[in-house]
């Protein structure tokens, strides 16, 4: 790779420019999908995939190092936290003597937002969201790393 820094993959100007503002947009959209999944099409899995693909796009355009920096958390931590959250969301039902994963709801009335329904289902969905981001990004980042190491060698 004639002396260029191996941490940055070659990518086109268009991709780099797009990567910059697509990332926050897609992450925001993924949050929208996550919360909308409550009553309408959407949900944790799809939202997680959208967010993960946003970061994958960012990795392709800006390189591995800056992607890791933007993500802040290690994907493995995301996976662990998400899985823990999803599993624990089933436990309150057990404590109330109902079967595991039975949905519990706590409607709240907030001053500005009106009625908000908090539920174990939401916790489960957020858990799934984090697991999907974590696992997809673990694979993508590992593959990108292997690719950069290969470039480094050649």
């Amino acid at each position: 790779m004639n002396g260029k820094s191996p941490t940055k993959m070659e990518s086109s100007l268009i991709l780099r420019a797009a990567g910059h503002f697509l990332l926050p947009l897609l992450v925001l959209f993924s949050l929208f999908l996550l919360l909308r999944g409550h009553n309408e099409p959407g949900g944790g899995f799809i939202a997680g995939l959208v967010a993960a693909s946003a970061f994958a796009l960012y990795t392709f355009s800006m390189g591995l190092k800056s992607a890791r920096k933007t993500l802040r958390a290690d994907p493995r931590d995301l996976m662990g936290a998400g899985l823990t959250l999803a599993l624990l969301s089933g436990v309150p039902a057990m404590l109330q003597g109902q079967p595991f994963l039975t949905a519990l709801w706590w409607p709240l009335t907030l001053p500005l937002l009106g009625e908000v329904k908090l539920s174990t289902v939401l916790a489960f969905d957020i858990g799934v969201y984090l697991v999907v981001i974590g696992s997809v990004l673990t694979i993508v980042l590992n593959l990108a790393e292997a690719e950069e190491n290969a470039e480094w060698k050649s």
Binding site: D74, R76, D77, M79, G80, A81, L83, T84, L87, L88
Partner: peptide, 12 residues
Amino acid sequence: PLLAGALSLLFW
């Protein structure tokens, strides 16, 4: 085991 797996991921 699932919870233990999640926790070992957190403690990696």
